[in-house]
Simulated assay, not measured.
Amino acid sequence: MQVNLNSTLTCPHCGHEKTEEMPSDSCQWFYDCTNCAAVLKPLQGDCCVFCSYGTRPCPPIQKGDTCCS
């Protein structure tokens, strides 16, 4: 299975979208919106900001794991 490391995050506060490269071996719990400076945190039940606000889930989830390591 090929893992795609690029995901477009959408800020829930201002709607700004930015494509970022995800870390391949860990979760990213915080993300600073480059437009409005809001600090994004994962929604309840998600392991990272990419799973909550991205167009693709984080690499461990893409691989079929239950959560980031």
Score class of each variant (00 low, 15 high):
A37G: 01
T34L: 05
H16T: 06
K63W: 05
S7D: 07
K41F: 01
V49I: 14
P60R: 07
N35Y: 09
S7F: 07
G15A: 04
G64C: 06
H13G: 02
T66Q: 12
Q2T: 15
C27H: 08
L9A: 05
S52F: 01
P23G: 04
S69R: 15
D32R: 09
Y53P: 10
S7K: 08
M22Q: 03
T66V: 08
N4W: 05
C67F: 06
C51E: 05
R56A: 12
P59Y: 08
N35L: 02
C27K: 11
T10C: 10
M22R: 01
N4H: 13
S69H: 14
D65A: 14
Y53T: 04
A37F: 05
F30D: 07
C47L: 02
H16V: 01
K63L: 12
C27P: 14
L40V: 00
P57D: 13
E20A: 06
L43I: 11
P60Y: 10
T55M: 06
P23V: 01
H13L: 03
E17S: 10
C47D: 14
P23I: 00
A38Y: 00
T8F: 03
E21W: 04
C11H: 09
P12A: 09
C14A: 06
Y53Q: 10
C27I: 05
K63V: 02
Y31G: 00
S24I: 06
E20G: 04
M22K: 00
T34Q: 11
P12V: 07
F50K: 02
P12H: 04
G45R: 07
C47Q: 07
C27V: 08
T10N: 08
E20W: 03
Q2G: 15
T55F: 06
L43V: 12
I61R: 14
C47S: 13
A37L: 08
C58Y: 00
T66F: 08
P59I: 03
D65K: 15
